[in-house]
Design a protein around this nucleic acid. Structure first.
Length: 107
DNA sequence: AGGGTGACCCGCT
DNA sequence: CAGCGGGCCACCC
């Protein structure tokens, strides 16, 4: 039931486990839209579903990015609580980036 | 059909 | 190494 780009994005983001992160760009690439990172960010902005861990999606340079009205402070706090270490406002993607995405939930 | 918005990315300076 | 500007993509008037 992936009529919208949102749904596709959500399927991907839902796969990111606690303690892991992914990037807008990585999600876009997985959806065969290497240049669609902005659309992913846009989808996150529209996302208000509590079951989607949108706080685990950060920028490709490791910085936190945004978190709508909640604020990046909240986002960073959530990540730390999940075990993701943040130094100098950035996450070490080589340690925390989740890459093992699957097409399982895409029908 | 065109313009505006948005939690981005990359190359250049 | 930090900052700026242009490019890209999906969606809503």
């Amino acid at each position: 039931m992936s009529d919208n780009f949102f749904d596709l994005v959500y399927r991907v983001v839902l796969q990111v486990p606690k303690g892991g992160v992914t990037t807008y760009s990585a999600v876009a690439r997985f959806l065969n839209n290497p240049r669609g990172s902005r659309s992913v960010g846009w989808a996150m902005r529209q996302c208000n579903l509590p079951e989607v861990p949108c706080h685990r999606v950060i920028k490709s340079d490791g910085s936190i990015g945004g978190y709508g009205d909640e604020g990046v402070a909240k986002k960073a706090k959530l990540l730390r609580k999940e075990g993701v270490m943040i130094t100098q406002g950035k996450v070490d993607l080589s340690k925390y980036e989740f890459r093992a995405f699957t097409l399982a939930n895409f029908g």
